[in-house]
């Protein structure tokens, strides 16, 4: 029975896979190793993202004061529904804000989402996103492969298909 459930989840990863090139607004990176990402979540639990490499990982940097972040957040929640963790790890990283601000924001925008807290912004600095929001795609070996510039609808066709193809490889 468990075998069938796993097979079903994997088929979700593969469904609709057809994109070949990264969609608009995504650039290829040079494959350098992803910087360390060890932070606490809203429950105070320490998370080392590298421990969960082995499948594709989306690392999303955001802040409550950033307009595009607010618009993009619900689409990340939808993406999580369409590509479950068996296909794609998704980690949100809030940059330089207080736990209270983050908690209140997520509760109003996407209560189903959790985030890691980069309280002093120094982890974000090491990842060098080109602005906020920014999303990195890290391959199963922990190498930086793509960067999404600015905000987007992650649950829309071009991005979803692209991610499905990546995670099917």
């Amino acid at each position: 029975m468990k075998k069938w459930i796993v097979a079903g989840l994997l088929s979700l990863c593969f469904a609709g896979a057809q994109a070949a090139e990264p969609p608009p607004g995504m650039i290829k990176l040079d494959g350098r190793p992803a910087p360390a990402l060890k932070l606490s979540d809203l429950d105070g639990k320490r998370v080392d993202v590298a421990q969960n490499y082995g499948r594709w990982t989306l690392v999303h940097f955001w802040a409550t004061w950033c307009g595009p972040c607010r618009r993009e957040m619900p689409t990340l929640a939808q993406l999580m529904q369409k590509l479950p963790p068996e296909c794609l790890n998704i980690y949100l990283v809030n940059t330089s804000e207080s736990e209270d601000d983050v908690f209140a924001f997520l509760a109003s925008v996407s209560p189903e989402l959790g985030t890691l807290l980069d309280r002093d912004g120094q982890v974000t600095e090491r990842w060098q996103p080109r602005g906020l929001p920014a999303s990195f795609l890290v391959d199963p070996q922990g190498k930086l492969r793509y960067l999404a510039l600015g905000g987007r609808d992650w649950a829309s066709g071009p991005y979803l298909n692209f991610l499905r193809e990546l995670t099917a490889k």
């Binding site: 607004g25 802040a63 330089s96 804000e97 600095e125």
Partner: peptide, 23 residues
């Protein structure tokens, strides 16, 4: 504080950026 410095930094124009088409 570092957090405030970081927030200020994110609101500044980058010192150098290779802007891709349509970026």
């Amino acid at each position: 504080p570092l957090a405030a410095q970081s927030t200020f930094g994110w609101t500044q124009l980058p010192e150098s950026r290779d802007l891709y088409p349509d970026e």
